[in-house]
Amino acid sequence: MADALPIVMNEQTHRFEVHLDGETAFAEYVLHHGSMVLPHTVVPPAFEGRGVGSALARAALGYAREHGLTVKPLCPFIAGYIKNHPEWQDLVDETFRERLGL
């Protein structure tokens, strides 16, 4: 399911979003002084365990990499995703590295 998700960056709501069967899954973001703060991710219960959260994380982190931003993962899901996927760890802002055990 996650491979074909049409994730959009909604600049008005400051969220990466995907709309599924009338519901919205999203990862909130705040752009601030060369960093992307990721405070919260929501996946409706009907879509949990189907890779939707991971797809949102990849979209947000991919945007950060593409735009030369560091990442401040406040969201426990995003922080866990980064810990489990070393290919994204270089994006983590220095002030958050110890918090994530990096």
Results as ranks from 00 to 15, higher is better:
K83F: 01
R15W: 04
W88L: 10
P76L: 11
F26S: 12
P39F: 08
Q12R: 10
M9T: 02
V8P: 09
G80W: 01
D3Q: 15
L38C: 01
I7F: 00
P39L: 04
L56E: 10
M9C: 08
H19S: 12
G34T: 02
G101N: 06
E17P: 03
A46S: 14
G53P: 01
V30D: 11
A27F: 07
K72T: 00
R15M: 02
G51S: 11
V42H: 15
H32Q: 11
E11G: 10
D3G: 10
L61W: 07
G80D: 08
A2S: 15
L74F: 13
L69R: 01
L69V: 03
V30F: 04
H19E: 13
H14E: 06
G22E: 14
R15I: 06
P6V: 01
G101R: 08
V30A: 09
L5C: 05
E28D: 12
A79G: 08
G62C: 10
P44I: 11
I78E: 10
R65V: 00
S54K: 13
G22D: 15
R50K: 15
Q89K: 12
A59V: 10
F77T: 04
P44R: 10
A46Y: 05
L100S: 03
A2M: 13
F16H: 06
T95P: 09
P44G: 14
H19Q: 14
V30G: 07
L20T: 01
V37N: 03
D90K: 11
Q12I: 09
P6K: 05
D90P: 09
P6E: 09
F77W: 09
